[in-house]
Design a protein around this nucleic acid. Sequence first.
DNA 1: GAAAGTAGGCGAAACGATTCGACTCGCTAC
DNA 2: GTAGCGAGTCGAATCGTTTCGCCTACTTTC
Lengths: 338, 338
Amino acid sequence: MNIGEIARRSGVSRSTVSYALSGKRAVSEATRQRIQAVIDELGYRPNAAARALKEGRTRTLGLVVPPTRRRLTFMQLEFVASVMEAADRADLDLLLSPSRDDHDRSFERIVGGRRVDGLILMEIRLDDPRVTRLQGLRLPFVTIGRTARPQGTCWIDVDYATLIDRCVNHLADLGHRHIALINRSAELIASGYGPAHRAREGFADAVARRGVEGVEFCCADDAAAGETCVQEILRAHPEVTAITTINEAALPGIQRALEDAGLNIPARFSVAGVAARYWAEQFHPQLTAADVPAVDMGATAVDFLVERVTDPDAPPRQHLFVPPISLRNSTGPAPAPR
Amino acid sequence: MNIGEIARRSGVSRSTVSYALSGKRAVSEATRQRIQAVIDELGYRPNAAARALKEGRTRTLGLVVPPTRRRLTFMQLEFVASVMEAADRADLDLLLSPSRDDHDRSFERIVGGRRVDGLILMEIRLDDPRVTRLQGLRLPFVTIGRTARPQGTCWIDVDYATLIDRCVNHLADLGHRHIALINRSAELIASGYGPAHRAREGFADAVARRGVEGVEFCCADDAAAGETCVQEILRAHPEVTAITTINEAALPGIQRALEDAGLNIPARFSVAGVAARYWAEQFHPQLTAADVPAVDMGATAVDFLVERVTDPDAPPRQHLFVPPISLRNSTGPAPAPR
DNA sequence: GAAAGTAGGCGAAACGATTCGACTCGCTAC
DNA sequence: GTAGCGAGTCGAATCGTTTCGCCTACTTTC
């Protein structure tokens, strides 16, 4: 069921069929219709491999996701889903690669075998081997998150520093004087994970500027860790009346620990974070949070990448998302000191 | 950077390079090493499109996931992740397609363009157009879930009927006499979604056999729906003392509504469900549930599919997962009637 | 009415791999 | 001494497209 068969049955040459399909040269309306009729009847679609070979492009994008030993966060999940749909809208296929490093098997397969026209990389570290690898290969890519020197590359990112700054300001405005930051895990920070570093910096700056006292805690990405982390905070820093966090996965545990400690939210304790909107709304009370626009981000990443694929010499585009804080029900005035 | 370049630089023909790489014919150790040295130096990897064209197979699997307007459940997410890793282990690439129907663009692209050697289909309906389409095309596939007549096809599924049966039995053993089933959404049931239908049947059979009273409620896949659903149950059926559910996403709302109604779990009310283990453990108290083995399922699906791709004439394999119920802290003896 | 242009079509050469048949050695067996 | 065989290699065909150059008619233009 190839183009030759279509050509034979419609009594024209293979090239005519090709031109009828692509429209790159004139084909008389009569033959075009004849060809189309045969194609419809036989349900022909050009073979992707042959086309890729000839054209030198695969019409496929790659999405490099972190291997799931560490579970995906809701934000990441939403992002993956939105990339999938954006690629679909652009009539591009999406190849998934679970890789953290440039030597991982699937990364090697996809990049070495030239299976994709461009790549979207998630979970970028400040110093990321995949980025340097791809730069050497002149394979277009967009990173979600920035490396330490992001000037020449194409990226989108969430401005965690500013978001945490806003959370701190919001809490300080409400009268809180002792605020804790629940960051991501210590390993993640040690591995140079940008958002965790930038949240840390934003927090330090904000508490300094507002003259409030801030303490930072690292916390693994799950509810149990969130629970023990809050217990630890309450024990070591009983003066703390508000928490801000970028650790989505810890939220259920944070909430539970506060509840168990009898600290009603928001009357006795406030929580303000950065999270996917859906996730923030699952909480009780619903979480005052900067809603990370994962869906927009996915669409933007695909847009940037497509642009880069079609015109590799265009200056790389970059976008920093700074979503506003949605005021919900988890923050309130600081309780009167006892 | 193609095989011809490698051949030129190592002073042999292209075919010799190919044989040196594949080992399908003898190549003297000396030339093999010479070729390998050139390859290592230049970092050559065979072009996937050319290879696919010649070999007639793409070394790629397709995973058809439901479009995300309706959000993926945790179980589905875990499944996708595990398929991704299993494919990677088998040295196969994974193409993602967000399609519900056989006419969806990406389904058409992937299937029509012969981009994959086989497909894994999620969210199978009892009567699914994609299945009939693929059967006509002789393209290997594995379904997650079964159609109404699954005899000739290759599938894996979770035995929701039996699991709900076990939940009901567990609750009945604890003395509960009025049990509610919180099923998935009414639309899903109307569209012929197997798990929801089979849960319904399993529930009906089990309550009949145990002689307890059962009521079934449909519920959309989110916390808010779960909350109102429980409120409705408590209003319309105040005699109910236990809930069983396959609706993962509703769990936070179920829990919250019971809490707000002052019904302590498990002292005053019991909940037993079917859920991803991680999700079940996030609850408070942790949920007594049949832990759906999403990771095993992903690996099995890939195994079955690979087997079918390599030997299309082998009888199609099938597997019904019946995970045991993990007793956690959300079920207890029925409260004494007031 | 010849030159020039255009619409419509065809054939063949790519793209980069794999694989089949054929060829040349050197060795063994009779 | 020659037939047979296996190891090692090469050339050419092939997979299914796209695209370039060329060719033929037919129209237009002066």
